[in-house]
Write a protein that binds this DNA or RNA. Structure first.
Lengths: 119, 119
DNA sequence: CCTTGACCTGGAGCGCACTCCAGGGTTTTC
DNA sequence: GAAAACCCTGGAGTGCGCTCCAGGTCAAGG
């Protein structure tokens, strides 16, 4: 089974080593396995989860929600709750996209207006 | 000429009174006119500018950039620079939308996967 | 007038999400 | 077996964008 050093996990996941430790402290990652000397060794599974975390962070999910989702993931019987959480998040993402788009349109109108002023 | 009290300006602009004062301190708003007693009176023009500020903030423009844009607006000869700033911002907004959309797609795949597991 | 509510200033405080640091121990490389 | 690179912990610090507060002053209704 492939494992990853902290530096490698950071490289692959796109999070800094400090952020990985921070996420672990916050309970977003379950405790990462250690060598006899105490150094972390990330598994493929950890990396897979980090990939989803990246997706959720990129779409603006707050740390607190991520933590809640991670806690739910510890219990097999919470599939429905997890899906509900993701769907709720999906709605918020859609809202952000909508706001961004309509404001972008206004922005472009403003630019067009400037252009008409002879810029 | 219609003018607005701080409370009215907040109501209309959608920013809190504290935020309006903060923006003025930061130089995002030019100094607002005052009554003899020192109370602010916002003009239609101020409200119009705040409307654009809202659009730019909603699309994630940082305060520092907004300040720069506001400073440029003081000089008539900077139209081109202002347009360049807005166009640059427009590109960043487009990027955000693109990221959000592609990550939303991944999110939806994840939800669909859960659904296939029988949720 | 006088009360009541809105507003003033300067500055402190806050929530979020990291990021950095000191002072160590561990692992790898030659 | 030593140097160099990497990693550990607990906790402090940072940057952003507000938000709140104390201790006043100002304005409008009765």
């Amino acid at each position: 089974m492939t494992t990853y050093s902290p530096a490698q996990a950071a490289e692959v996941s796109g999070f800094s080593i400090d952020t990985l430790r921070y996420y672990e402290r916050e309970g977003i990652l379950r405790p990462i396995a250690r060598t006899s000397g105490g150094h972390r060794t990330y598994t493929e599974d950890d990396l897979g989860w980090l990939d989803l975390v990246h997706c959720l962070r990129d779409t603006g999910m707050p740390i607190a929600d991520l933590k809640q989702y991670a806690e739910l993931s510890l219990d097999e019987a919470t599939l429905a709750a997890r899906v509900a959480l993701l769907e709720e998040h999906d709605r918020r993402v859609q809202e952000s996209i909508d706001v961004l788009r309509s404001q972008q349109e206004r922005l472009r109108e403003k630019i067009a207006w400037y252009r008409k002023q002879g810029v």
